[in-house]
């Protein structure tokens, strides 16, 4: 988007309303889908929908889309280590449970 901006651009009211409707719709979807049993995919579906919702909140409500790039890099680094922790944790536990 806009690079090297010194002062922040702003969002209008409209985009926030759109995102809000999107978030409510996704909440409806996640509730509707929760009743269906996809087996192991059930929790994955819930987490994917929650991630999409978080992405919308982060980029639009929290202005990351119009923020300087360094903010996005910071977030990606933080999430990277968060995901590493949980992957290693489960690598460990799935092994412990099986043995």
């Amino acid at each position: 988007m806009h690079k090297d901006e010194t002062h922040q651009h702003m969002h209008g009211y409209g985009i926030y309303l759109l995102v809000w409707m999107g978030l409510l719709t996704l909440t409806g979807v996640t509730v509707a889908v929760a009743g269906i049993n996809f087996g192991a995919l059930t929790i994955a579906t819930a987490l994917i929908i929650a991630s999409i919702k978080s992405y919308l909140v982060l980029t639009i409500f929290m202005h990351l889309r119009i923020e300087q790039r360094v903010f996005r890099i910071f977030l990606v680094v933080a999430l990277f280590f968060f995901i590493i922790s949980i992957v290693l944790l489960f690598a460990d536990y799935s092994f412990l449970i099986k043995s």
Binding site: T27, T30, V31, A34, G35, T42, I43, A46, L47, I49, A50, K53, S54, V57, L58, F61, M62
Partner: peptide, 22 residues
Amino acid sequence: GLYWHLVDIIWIFLFPLFYLIT
């Protein structure tokens, strides 16, 4: 606002993990 949106994001994950496992 950033703090408030973070609270929102945490709930976005708490809700399906606690209320929607049926």
